[in-house]
Design a protein around this nucleic acid. Structure first.
Length: 112
DNA sequence: CAACTGACGATAG
DNA sequence: CCTATCGCCAGTT
């Protein structure tokens, strides 16, 4: 097994894995930053996911709008993509309650 | 090369 | 429940 991984971590681009995961989010579902980070290997690396989404969303054609925060809400600030994301999600059939919160019970994506 | 920043999250108080 | 703090990695400055 010639594992050349460092003992401290598994390496292999956390980013690349995160990207693969993000691309797996099915239409009509959403995932949280922490979720993706956890699947990529680091439950605490939610922030990196943000960076990836921000810098590689167009490059890799990532469904960035299907990624939201832990509260089930959109993290973007109004007038900064917030409404765009919300519109895209609603277009896929995702509903928001009166608090602009997404119902995880119905829409949260879980890896198989 | 060091410091800062980022659409966050878990934990502690 | 809410606020505060630390941590995560990578890309920028």
């Amino acid at each position: 097994m010639r594992i050349s991984r460092k003992a401290t971590s598994e390496v292999s681009s956390f980013s690349h894995r995160a990207i693969s995961i993000i691309q797996k989010i099915p239409r009509g579902k959403v995932a949280t930053y922490g979720q993706i980070a956890a699947y990529a290997g680091n439950p605490y690396a939610a922030r990196q996911v943000v960076r990836i989404l921000c810098s590689s969303s167009e490059k890799y054609g990532l469904p960035w709008y299907r990624v939201i925060n832990r509260k089930g809400q959109i993290s973007l600030r109004p007038n900064c993509g917030y409404e765009i994301q919300k519109a895209l999600l609603q277009k896929e059939g995702i509903k928001f309650d009166k608090n602009d919160t997404i119902d995880f019970e119905r829409y949260l994506w879980t890896a198989s």
